[in-house]
Amino acid sequence: MLKVTSLCRNFGGLPALSEVSFSLQRGRVTALIGPNGAGKSTMINCITGVDQPDAGRVEYLGEEITGMPAYRVAHLGIARTFQNLRLFPRLSVLDNVLCGLTVQGGKSMFGALIRPPQVRNRERRLRLKAMSALDRFGLTDLADWPVDVLAYGDRKRVELARAIVSEPSLILLDEPVAGLNHEETALVGHEIRALRAQGYTLLLVEHDMDLVMGVSDHVVVLDGGRCIASGTPDEVRQNPLVLEAYLGRTAVMA
């Protein structure tokens, strides 16, 4: 569904990604793991147009999207969350989630100013949709709250709700459980499995190995900007290169 070929990205001469290739299968959960600085977030940024790769190709449903601006990538049905939460602090929870429906809203400023019946009806439809996404994540009671007064865990859920509300064909989650407690992590894991069951395709960047091993169909391991292994969770777990990357050379030798 998504195919990344020999992607490279340098930051001032330092390679953050070099020649990374992998692909995502429709309806599967793929995890992208690796130690800090392995290039995971850079990869997500290059796929979604937030960052531009220096070389390589990204294809989505057979169409090349390399270097496409982020807003156009979003219109193709690729949604994402961010590692360090990027919510709109002054907007309410409901408005934040409504922003996730930008791709289904009208783009005409004239229509927005005049507000003819079709715009009115569309707004009503979007609102219902947003409310059902809030309901799914247990945020209904918080709908009117400004986001910046919420607890961290709640804000994470708002971002998740904002990413899935438009029913995108591909969801990229950048560390969805970072900073969450055990209970909240289990909830997110449950939610990822539920999304998979509904037929969504997901790419998960995560540090939490229990979560990754529990929900993924396929795991890709990055280290120092290179793809060092890929396979099922069990294959990856036993791969000596992966152990070395995570535990260090000496630990494995010993």
């Binding site: 979604t48 147009g49 937030v50 601006p69 982020a70 807003y71 990538v73 979003a74 219109h75 949604a79 994402r80 961010f82 990027r86 919510l87 709109f88 602090p89 002054r90 907007l91 922003c99 996730g100 930008t102 791709v103 783009k107 904002r162």
Partner: peptide, 13 residues
């Protein structure tokens, strides 16, 4: 106004 990068990623040109 809140976050340009996030806005772009949600499809705002």
């Amino acid at each position: 106004a809140g976050d340009e990068v996030a806005a772009r990623s949600l499809g705002v040109d």
